[in-house]
Design a protein around this nucleic acid. Structure first.
Lengths: 182, 182
DNA sequence: AAATGTCTTCATTTTGAATTGAAATCCCCA
DNA sequence: TGGGGATTTCAATTCAAAATGAAGACATTT
């Protein structure tokens, strides 16, 4: 439950004038809610929940946020956040801005889902699909050493698998387009 | 490394005549390979690896297999296999056959990928998408309590999310069809 | 309807992935 | 170019998800 590291303040986005109604707490609740939503989604597809949480916070935030603020809002270590941010950057889902003046970098979500989805497909799905290809090849090489009575059925199964593999590969860009747009 | 339970034999599918070449070992290697392939795939999308392994073994096998054989080939407990088989059955990816004469049920893979993919979408993705819908609603209800200066941006973000959500929902059947066929 | 053997369930244990914390590195500014 | 904070990295730790194992439920056979 602790998230303290580095300089112990600097976290609030400046109290501002706090004009009338609307609690600052609601803002945090809102961010947390969006975080949870993306967290669930990340989990669903086998990504660490924290990546989703981080993206969510950034997606919800009106302004870019520094690493430490994210860590505090989520209650996780800056180590975690650093790793998560890097991965999200690789996905192309967020933007890092080594900001003017300050030595502290800030991060903002790229709002287009296409980028998030695409990043996931490119970074996680594609490599696995490629691996599947090799696996199928390796198994095909195994066919001749099977007992004759197994050979035919095994070959058929492999062919089925192989067809599906090609198909999946060629369909990915499609899926990306479908899930990306708005 | 132990998988012994229940009756200590009954496992081999009968030695048969073992006619000429082609080792029985290759058959196991083949099954294992296909198992690994589906295991990786399961993992990729956030399912327990063992489900994939089980499906893989069944997919590779020339004949339906009883639970215990599966457990032995995978080197896992029959408890695990029982759970995995149930889940796969719910997915509609395998078939249980409380077979004639014998009290032992046997299992076979339904070879159509459409069923496997469809099961995953129906059992895991759809419920989550539904949950996302509720989450968006809940967050929308939160909007009025936000400070005025946040309201507009937050509303836009939520709308974006909402649009994406509807779109994802309406596209699922499509994806199923794309990934299912052969 | 009892006995035998199969299968499921679930409290406990194990295991592997995610997180932490702190040392090493990097980067900015003086 | 050096000092100081910001960031990354990674071995050790934590923790949640998966596997186990054994008790109970269920079927089948006699």
């Amino acid at each position: 439950m602790t998230a303290k590291t580095l300089s112990p303040t600097l976290t609030e986005p400046a109290p501002e004038s706090s004009p009338n109604a609307g609690s600052q707490a609601s803002v945090l609740e809102f961010e947390e809610g969006i975080g949870a939503l993306f967290g669930d989604l990340a989990e669903l597809f086998g990504n660490p929940r924290s990546y989703g949480l981080i993206y969510g916070i950034l997606f919800a935030s009106r302004e870019p946020l520094p690493m430490e603020t994210i860590a505090e809002r989520l209650g996780v270590s800056i180590g975690s956040v650093s790793m998560g941010l890097r991965r999200l950057e690789e996905f192309g889902a967020i933007e890092r801005e080594r900001s003017a003046g300050r030595g502290t970098a800030v991060f903002s979500a790229k709002l287009e889902m296409r980028l998030l989805v695409g990043g996931f497909l490119r970074e996680r799905v594609l490599p696995r699909i490629a691996a599947t290809g090799s696996q199928v090849e390796a198994l095909t090489a195994l066919l001749p050493s099977l007992p004759p009575e197994d050979r035919k059925v095994s070959k058929q199964r492999l062919e089925r698998l192989s067809r599906w593999h090609s198909r999946a590969k060629s369909i990915l860009p499609f899926i990306e387009k479908l899930l990306g747009g708005g």
